[in-house]
Structure formats: structure tokens, C-alpha cells
Simulated scan of single mutants.
Amino acid sequence: MTDPLQDPRFFADPYPTYARLRDAAPVQKVVTGAGGRHSYLVTGYPEAREAFADPRLSKDTVRFFAGRPSQRDLHPAVSRNMLATDPPQHARLRTLVAKAFTTGAVARLRPCIAGLVDELLDSWPDHGPVDLVASLAVPLPVTVICEMLGVPESDRWLVCTWSSDLFAVGDTQRSDAASHAIGGYMTDLVAARRGSPGESLLDDLIAVRDGQDRLTEDELVSLAVLLLVAGHETTTNFIGNAALALLQHPESLARLRAEPQLLGSALDELLRFDSPVGIATFRYSTEAFTLGGTEIPEGVPVLIAPGAANRDPNRFPGPDQLDFNRGGAGHLAFGHGIHRCLGASLARAEAELALRAVISRFADIRPAIPAEELEWRHTRLMRGLTALPLTWSRGTPRST
């Protein structure tokens, strides 16, 4: 029996695999990884929503792996971050950074984000080709989160490379090396900012550490690493996936052009249709329980698949169709419960402003290569394109 989530066909199009597994059982035991290791995979919508909020599913990786032999060498800032904690520690850490990602805080960032989008699109050639991922989907969220954290401009592409390497499937050495590179970098940046403080989010976290002693040094660095990585990875995938979905559904794209006010609500359907997160981060059972009619024993990994749940036909009829009339409300692309993505509002704002600008500027934009030639990231955690080459007719009107 092989791992169904590491087949090359899965990375190109995971939805047939998700459908087959979900039809067999919404929760089931599957092989994951080498050596015949097993996990329980959750693909049904109600089961995934329940699992996201179930306190019997822990994210405390330190506790799970204690005393277990491991061939991994991840930097502690990566392996022991806020995503790998349970209450009450999780609530304490999340509270410290939540104010930077409130709806009001994101609203104040929108003019800067819009200006950055315009700046990036102004650099596009007159008629293509251009890679939307490299020229918009990556630099937009990278620049925003780096500005928030005070990462120097000269270091941003290096940080971006390390972040991408963290999710390299089948190359643990590369992933582990990237974790140490980015962990070491943020350790040095914390030290530099402490000696020359400014007004960034990282400075705010340092002040909490140095002023009120509510953060340990390890917690401070791990929060900085998590914000840096999570602050752009999901959004990059979201923008690329949404742009491709619109280009492959010209009737939906035409509707957004005719009804631009629809884009805000259309984001939910775009997130549902091709979730930027395929499999949520690690969880394990702290006791035996039943989920979706399946008995899950104590102490086993449980993988929740929002990418599969968002296409559950019992929750979203005709799930393989992009339908803005449905709205997509209730999707699980950002998770659910106490671990729901902290940066969801920021990701939505960045994607909305990026897509709105592309739609309004380029009336005849289209993929430059056939769909079957597009390359997808080889990671079951993230669902995203490595590149999206675009072209458009010479002389296509552009806004100024």
C-alpha cells in the first residue's frame, strides 16, 4: 500500500484522489510517508470541521515526539512554534500578535497594499509573457509581511527561498537546512532590532519580551519565524490558484469584470474551489474517540484535509464547479476553531486587491501555456503553482 498523497498526479490535481478517499470513508486510516507509517485522514466536510475544533486532537508536537527516534533536524523555532501548541499556551502567544491582524489593522494597510500592487503591475511588459507567481503572487505578500516585521529589503528573496524550501516534499535534508537558515536569520534579526529598535511588529514583540518578560527568547524567535513564513506562503498560493481558476472559467471572469463589487464575496468561492492549504498542519489524538464513524486510537497522527472538505458534495453541491452564486461561505481554507488562520483578513485583502487590479488592467489576459504543462508545488500541505505564465494581446488597454 502506497501513500496516496505523494503520487505525482496528486500534486497536479488532488481532487480525484480526495473524492475517491472521501467516497470510501470521510475518515480513514492511510499510509503516509516511508516505512509504512499510518495516519488518519479526514476528508469529509462535517468531520473536518468537527476535527478542527476537537480538543482531543493536540498540536503539541514536542509532547508527541518525546522519546521517539527522529531523523529530522528542524530548528526549534520551526518545530516548536505557536502552531505546535495547545491551550493555554496557544492562547497566550496568539493574543500577543492578534492585534496586528485585526480587521481594523488590515483596513489601515489596504492603501499601502494597493500601492504595492500597482507598483508591481507597472513593471509588467506591454503584452507579456509574465509569470504571475514570480511577479505578483510572491513579492506582494512577502513585501507586506517583511515590512511589518522589519526585514531589510536586501534579505527578502533569501528569506522567501528558505521558506519555500521548508515545504520540500521528499527532501528532508533541504527542509531541515532551510529551517536552520531561517531560524538563525531571525535570531540575528531579533538581536539587531533590539540594539536599534524601530516601530515594526517584531519590535513590538521584543518589547513584550524585554519589558514584561512574557515571552521567552525561544518563543520570540519562533513567533517571528512563524509570522514570516505563514505571512506569505498561503497568500501566494491563494492569488495564483484564484487567478488560474478565473482564467479557466471565462464566464466567471467576465462576471467579475461586469460586477467588480462581487469580488469580495467571490473570494470565498475561490478559496473553496482550490484551497491554498491542502492538508492542515500536524495533529494527533490524545485519547481514543470516534469521528465520522471511524474509531481513532490514542496517540496517532490525524490529517485534516480542507482541500477535500471544501469539495464535499454533501456540503457544496456540484463542488467541482466554480459558482459565485454559491458564495462559498463556510469553507475551511483557513481552518476552523482556535487555530483558524490568524492572517486570514490580511490574505483576503492582498488577494482581493491583486486580483481586482489584474482584472481591471488586462482585458485579454490568458495562460501562456496549456494547463497540463503548469507545474504545482510538490507538497501535500500547500496547494500552489510554482509558476503561472500569462500573456495578452499587444495593445490591450491598461489603466494608468
Rank of each mutant, 00 (worst) to 15 (best):
I304Q: 01
A357V: 07
A309H: 09
P317C: 04
Y284R: 04
G307R: 06
I359F: 01
G307M: 05
F289S: 00
R340S: 13
G328M: 06
V358I: 13
F324S: 08
E352F: 14
T281D: 10
R315G: 11
G307D: 05
E295G: 05
A309I: 06
L253T: 09
G318Q: 11
A308G: 09
R356K: 12
P317K: 09
I296T: 06
S265H: 15
Q248R: 15
P306K: 11
L270Y: 08
G343E: 01
A363N: 02
P250R: 06
V302E: 00
N310A: 04
R356G: 14
G307Q: 05
L267R: 08
E287F: 08
N310Y: 07
F273E: 05
L262H: 12
H249V: 02
D274T: 14
P319E: 02
F282H: 09
S345D: 15
R340G: 09
R348Q: 11
I304V: 15
E295R: 14
V302N: 01
R326V: 13
S345Q: 15
L246T: 09
T286D: 00
P250H: 01
T286M: 04
D274E: 15
L246H: 06
I304E: 00
L271D: 03
R257W: 00
V277G: 02
A349R: 12
I359N: 00
